[in-house]
Amino acid sequence: MEAIQNITLKVWRQDGPADGGRFENYNVPEISDEASFLEMLDVLNERLINEGKEAIVFDHDCREGICGTCSLMINGQAHGPARMTATCQLHMRKFASNDTIVVEPWRASAFPILKDLMVDRSAFDRIIEVGGFITAPTGGAPDANLIPIPKPVADAAMDAAECIGCGACVAACPNGAANLFTSAKIAHLNMLPQGQAERFARTEAMVEKMDEHFGSCTNHGECEAACPKGISLDFIALMNQDYRKSKFKNRKSLSRT
């Protein structure tokens, strides 16, 4: 283990949703290179509390990259400089002694800042509510392998299902668009046999709900680069294709009723 010395942290502090907020500087004299970024913040917070100051508020939960709760714009990159890692998995060894590290919350109108670095991501829930599920009878457990799914299909659906809903795609997108999140949530159901019944209703509803909260995609690719799970832009193309299909199919079937 080696220690990293004299880190200057420039952290966004904001007292509440209505506050204007400002950067404040903190010095971290020494931290282990094995510490995660969040552990470094813990150490700093402990000191702040001991000094009678208010701790920095940030989101975190599992701390192993699976829950999607942590966030943070670190030196202008969502989840920091390491690829395919959430902030909780980001190690301090990615930084050097005497570095200045700038930490900001996600910024999007759909993600209002609650306090300091914590934002409200429930706009994602609004998208899930209108179609990010399958309607299935919950009787006795069905036999395993009752529904055959080709291996490549299962793999692709799993790739989409990896999305942990952290919001890094929105945060990284110059337009504040949520196309990567929405397309992953749509794709992981639309590709599976169980998802077919509601496929077109789901796609139409989720895309249009996304529209109410977020910006539009200009295919920069920043979302894919920021995603801690490496969700592919191909899912956005798939969503754009399914949305078109769903507009035509839903129109036909609705005009029959």
């Binding site: 420039k10 966004w12 907020g21 950067f23 714009m73 030196n75 202008g76 990159q77 400089p81 700038v102 900001e104 910024r107 999007a108 109108s109 759909a110 990284a172 110059p174 337009n175 504040g176 668009a177 977020f214 910006g215 539009s216 920069h220 920043e222 680069a225 920021a226």
Partner: peptide, 13 residues
């Protein structure tokens, strides 16, 4: 969709 810009410099990838 982003009325308040990032207050620090973005590092585009």
């Amino acid at each position: 969709a982003r009325p308040v810009k990032y207050q620090s410099e973005r590092d585009y990838v």
